[in-house]
């Protein structure tokens, strides 16, 4: 679905993050994140809850501005740009919110059509076919006229995914795409992320706590802990890491006994 890749890969990283700091009141969330994301890769962000994974994702799309540090998106610095200056860059990004953030007042089809209409597509037949295509991908093409309030949590999330991919973005940021979904739909979403990467060279940044999904989709895994990058490497490197925290995290061991 998304636009085909450019013939020559860019020399500089697609997204370059340097020394990113972010605090909310007295709580320091990000304390110096350095991270490069290459065009076409699927990077999975893992780590304990509350360690700033969603905050990092929101910086990549400019929804949050850093206290210090820089973010370059395809060579353009996002820091200090106004909402209107950010708009054209944001249209190149698809974003799945943790709770889907569907518009309550619009139907499923209208929600998915929203990015297309805002991108200036006026042909109703084209909008309809692309909405249908996106909803077929997440297996919700039979629910186009439903309102978000009438959908289950998992269905809302899938509509959110359809809305994120319908505009054929170059990069898709997924904030827990499979949380609350059953194992079969989780597998469908995992395959969708890989399919978008293979077929259209889409860059994906995925936050997930589902370790099975991590190893299924990741080209690279980044673990955040205490506001910094604690681990950055391949799935194999993570699997064979001697670090006890990482091994406990992968195995889901809290150290508590019942």
């Amino acid at each position: 679905m998304p636009a085909p890749p450019s013939a020559e890969p860019a020399a500089s990283p697609f997204i370059q993050i340097r020394g990113l700091h972010k605090s909310f009141d007295s709580q320091k969330v990000l304390q110096g994140i350095d991270l490069d994301i290459s065009r076409g890769e699927t990077l999975v962000l893992v780590g304990p809850s509350g360690e700033g994974k969603s905050v990092l994702l929101k910086h990549i799309i400019g929804l949050l501005q850093p206290d210090a540090g820089s973010i370059q998106f395809d060579g353009t610095s996002l820091c200090g740009l106004s909402e209107r200056q950010l708009a054209p860059l944001r249209r190149r990004i698809g974003y799945l919110f943790q709770n889907a953030a569907l518009f309550d007042s619009l139907t499923v089809a209208q929600n998915v059509a929203f990015p297309l209409i805002e991108a200036g597509i006026k042909n109703p037949a084209e909008i309809k076919s692309r909405v249908q295509e996106a909803l077929e991908v997440v297996e919700l093409d039979a629910h186009t006229e439903k309102m978000p309030i009438n959908l289950s949590g998992g269905m809302r999330k899938r509509v959110g995914i359809a809305r994120a991919i319908v505009g054929r973005p170059e990069i898709i940021l997924y904030d827990e795409p499979t949380a609350g979904l059953d194992p079969i739909v989780t597998d469908v979403i995992d395959h969708l992320i890989k399919r978008l990467q293979k077929r259209y060279h889409v860059t994906s940044v995925v936050i997930t706590h589902d370790i099975a999904s991590v190893f299924k989709i990741a080209d690279r895994i980044v673990m955040l802990k205490n506001g910094i990058v604690y681990f950055n490497g391949s799935p194999d490197q993570l699997r064979h890491s001697p670090d006890t925290f990482i091994q406990d995290f992968i195995a889901g061991r809290s150290g508590m006994t019942s």
Partner: peptide, 8 residues
């Protein structure tokens, strides 16, 4: 935020 993320 969803509006902003879509450039609106």
């Amino acid at each position: 935020d969803a509006l902003r993320a879509m450039g609106v």
